[in-house]
């Protein structure tokens, strides 16, 4: 029984640790913190593995655990965000000097967490708007608004839109 649990757990770790590490990094923006967060996430997953009945739900289950662990460790149960937050000023002031290879990273770092997180879940995790809404306990409309605004900000940065067009 223990061996079966360990085998199942190992399969989850091998399949998802890399992408969860990246998600953790972009949540806490620190490589060591990301690995600690990942360890906590899998420790929790190990303890509650019997609660995972559908293997198809494993990915969203692990993302949700990681997200909750991050909230618990950083005492941030909900993302402080107002939908009318002025992202125009963010684009003009905080990102004015970004350049070349660092520009997208800087731009992503500068996004408010409430805008960055659904973007991470969508681009990195491959989740749909409805799935993100469920994980973040938001309405689907709110998620779509945040995703739209995040992309508008990123697109507005000098060089990013040009880069996007060049890449197309």
């Amino acid at each position: 029984m223990f061996e079966g649990k360990r085998t199942r757990f190992e399969a989850l770790v091998r399949a998802y640790s890399a992408e969860l590490y990246r998600y953790a990094y972009w949540l806490c923006r620190d490589r060591f913190g990301a690995e600690d967060l990942l360890q906590e996430t899998f420790a929790r997953a190990w303890g509650n593995l019997s609660a995972l009945r559908d293997e198809h739900a494993a990915k969203s289950w692990l993302y949700t655990i990681l997200r909750n662990e991050h909230a618990r460790l950083f005492e941030r149960m909900r993302l402080p965000i107002a939908d009318d937050e002025d992202l125009d000023s963010l684009a003009d002031s905080r990102l004015g000097n970004v350049h070349d290879a660092l520009e997208m990273r800087e731009a992503l770092h500068a996004l408010p967490p409430g805008y960055r997180e659904p973007l991470l879940l969508q681009v990195l995790g491959g989740f749909t708007c409805d799935e993100i809404a469920s994980m973040m306990e938001l309405s689907s409309g709110a998620v779509m608004t945040r995703l739209s605004r995040a992309r508008l900000v990123l697109r507005r940065q000098p060089g990013l839109a040009d880069g996007a067009e060049a890449a197309a």
Binding site: S17, A18, Y21, R22, Y25, W26, R31, E35, M104, R105, L108, L119, L120, V123, L124, R151, L154, R155, L160, A161, G163, A164, E165, A166, A167, A168
Partner: peptide, 18 residues
């Protein structure tokens, strides 16, 4: 344009894993 932007976002997000 947005597909290209998303590819660029994706490349940035996919950091090397230790």
């Amino acid at each position: 344009d947005l597909s290209a932007l998303d590819r660029k976002i994706g490349r940035t997000l996919r950091l090397p894993v230790p």
